[in-house]
Amino acid sequence: MTEILVPIITMTALGFLFSLGLVFAYRKLKVYEDPRIEQVSAILPQANCGACGYAGCRAFAEAVVKGEAAPDGCPVGGEEVTAQVAAALGVKAPEVIKKIARLHCRGSHEAAKNRGPYIGISTCHAAHLIGGNKQCSFGCLHFGDCVRACPFDALYMAEEGLPVVREDKCTACGKCVDACPRNLFELHPFTQEIIVYCRSKDRGATSRKVCKNACIACGICSRACPDAIVIENNLAVITDYKKIDPEKIPDIEKCPTAAIGRLHKEKKEDEG
């Protein structure tokens, strides 16, 4: 009998002793953590992309719970995540308009002329250092730094030589905005219909020479919509897209180089 009892008692006693020690240590060393951090963290996409401005999803969750960041701070999660985070914290969700990255260049292989053959490291950053392979010094270099930077597979390089944003996959994380050495990407509200497809600050005559689709600052668009579009540094700039009169859109689309135009037009053509 003792042969069985002794080991049982010994092990029980040992286990009890150690657990007692642990309980005591736990009391001393307990770290209080707001349970909502875990909750919010679980809702977030866990892409750890840093688009919110924090080190990662967990850091953002901590900031939201502390009240340092707004619940709509996660551009990747969009509306859905914002609503859930707000619900988890018991605050009202601010209204969010989904943003999307847009390329401000239409200098495809065909439209924009080459300066000469480029033989070198095939990244945009490398090509940009020597001024690029295009005559236009503002346009897309099409080595696809943005495509490689995209963590969501939302960009691909089209045959014509320009990166295309897959609207369903783009989360507006802003990685492509940072990746482009020529700052051709910008995040726009999904609802914005009119976009200037050019960043060239060259004078009209010059830009017309180097690229078929460059803005030549003729002013047709700004005359159609003076409240919303201005010409700055030889480039049409949309100052407030909400002020664009829908009736004036056909006038804007008269742009001789198609450097400004309606967004969804391209998409519809694709579908048709």
Binding site: S19, A25, Y26, V31
Partner: peptide, 19 residues
Amino acid sequence: SFILVIASLVQLVEMFIRK
């Protein structure tokens, strides 16, 4: 019993480092 010892110690270290 050694497993018991090791497991408890690791728990202790874990709590300590977390703190």
